Amino acid sequence: MAKINLASEEWCDLIFEGRNKGYGAYKMRMDAPKRHNLSLLIIVLLTAFFIAVPELIKLATPEQKEVMTEVTQLSKLDDAEVKDKKLNKVEPIAPPPPPLKSSVKFVAPVIKKDSEVRDEDEMKSQEQLQESKVTISIADVKGNDEEHGKDIAEIKQVVTQAPVEEVEEKPYTAVEQMPQFPGGESELLKYIFDKLRYPTISQENGVQGKVYIRFVVSKTGDVKDAQVMRSLDPYCDKEALRVIRSLPKWIPGKQNGVNVPVYYVVPITFKLQ
């Protein structure tokens, strides 16, 4: 059986053979394939339009990123290995002794007649020697300062060693009473959240994650020696360091009831939403 095309003009003429073709049904039958094709084309175009409209609107509208800076809870990390630098002990140099006056040379006694002994050569009593402040020595000391020098009897203490400077105490990693931010941990998180600013270039590059900052709370409660322990990117690292270095004084940590410097670690999260 031959295949019949029901939309062909030959089939339409066969159907309307011997019938009135002027009242409209014949024309509608003849135009039906065109109408069907046009309707199908319109449906396809409308479908494609409605699918493309949201994408076109999205492309035409500049992308806006909602930025949310999240500060995570504090956590303890293993401290980075810090190698102690061996310092050579420098022996202090003792200051030179003060200039002295010449001492009186001891002269062996000579027996003479009383008439030959002058008053100034007579042996003085102990009281007279103390009043005159004369020092008896077995030898003369040459090169002394007679005008500005000191009497050896007036020197009560001789300094033999220069004072040693106090060595800075190494920070602790854990103590009996850890340092505390004024108001507690919640106030610390609020302070960081209020001060932290997400770097624009990091937002544009889609950078997000955590920066870990370690710093020292000194014996006086000052925050110092802040450094990045785990980096995210240079701009986020710099911003995190800026905020940590701006922290006010803390309540210092204590060991055996004495204020001591202590290491402290704070993780800061940068997150885009």
Rank of each mutant, 00 (worst) to 15 (best):
D119H: 10
R29G: 07
G209V: 00
Y23V: 15
T135C: 08
K224N: 09
P171S: 01
V265F: 08
D233F: 08
S218D: 06
R29Q: 07
T173V: 08
M30A: 06
Q177N: 08
S137H: 02
P54F: 10
S132R: 15
R118G: 03
K76R: 05
F270K: 04
I43Q: 10
E91L: 14
E63Y: 05
G149N: 11
K142F: 03
G209T: 03
E63Q: 09
D140P: 01
A139D: 08
V164P: 05
K210L: 02
G18S: 10
L38H: 06
S132P: 02
D119V: 12
K86R: 03
K271A: 06
L232V: 09
N37E: 13
M28I: 08
K85N: 07
F49M: 12
G22P: 00
L272C: 01
M1V: 07
A60S: 10
Q227H: 12
N88Y: 13
N5K: 11
W11Q: 05
K83A: 02
M123E: 04
F270P: 06
E154K: 09
A2D: 03
E176Q: 11
V158M: 11
S39H: 08
I111Y: 03
E10V: 13
T61W: 05
Q273P: 03
D114T: 13
P96C: 00
I192K: 09
R242G: 15
F215I: 02
A108Y: 10
M229T: 11
P199C: 10
P252G: 06
V243H: 07
V71D: 03
N5E: 12
K150E: 15
Y172I: 02
K113P: 00
D225R: 09
I251H: 11
I111K: 08
Q203N: 01
M1D: 10
E185G: 00
E185V: 06
E63L: 06
D13K: 11
L196A: 06
V243N: 05
V107Q: 14
V110Q: 14
T69N: 14
Q126V: 14
I51A: 13
V90G: 04
V159L: 13
M229D: 13
M68S: 12
K156V: 06
N20T: 09
I93R: 08
A25E: 15
E239L: 05
V258F: 06
I192Y: 05
A162N: 11
K124T: 05
G253S: 05
Q64L: 15
Q227I: 09
L87P: 00
L6S: 04
M68P: 00
P99C: 07
E239Q: 14
L232P: 07
A139L: 07
P99H: 10
N88A: 14
V175Q: 04
L232N: 07
E55N: 10
Y172C: 02
V71F: 12
K195M: 12
A32C: 06
E120S: 14
S102W: 00
V134P: 00
I57F: 15
E204T: 07
T69V: 15
I244P: 09
E147A: 14
A139K: 12
Y235G: 02
V82N: 12
E9C: 02
E169Q: 14
Y264C: 09
Q208P: 00
Q157P: 02
M229Y: 12
W250Q: 11
P54K: 09
Y172T: 01
V228N: 02
